[in-house]
């Protein structure tokens, strides 16, 4: 593996995506507030997007499909962040906290 052609090796990107996935899982398990978990989820999204882009660049015959897919992922992530933040703010109004440990009450 030539060090100068590092940016043309798919393994580098794949390992980087795996690292992002691991970091996101670590944050998702370790964070105890909802916003921290949301941020870790965004990192997992980024890992999936990077993986799709690598597959598209190196292994797929159609070069546009991966980019379209990643665009859809970005749109869905934006929608998800908007919904999740509004839920988080509603939770904070009710509980005065967004710690995931304290969300214990159910209504109904």
């Amino acid at each position: 593996m030539n060090l100068l052609e590092l940016h043309q090796q798919p393994g580098v990107y794949l390992v980087l995506a795996a690292f992002l996935m691991g970091a996101g899982i670590y944050g998702f398990l370790r964070r105890r507030t909802l916003i921290g978990m949301l941020i870790s989820g965004e990192i997992i999204f980024a890992a999936a997007s990077l993986n799709l882009m690598v597959m598209n660049r190196f292994f797929a015959p159609d070069p546009a499909v991966g980019q379209v897919f990643v665009l859809f992922i970005m749109g869905l992530a934006a929608a998800e962040v908007a919904i999740a933040l509004s839920i988080i703010i509603a939770v904070y109004r009710n509980y005065r906290s967004i710690g995931s440990r304290e969300l214990t009450g159910l209504k109904g």
Binding site: R32, T33, G36, I88, I89, Y92, S97, I98, G99
Partner: peptide, 8 residues
């Protein structure tokens, strides 16, 4: 800003 996100 709208909530109090720091972990207890």
């Amino acid at each position: 800003m709208l909530s109090e996100p720091d972990e207890p």
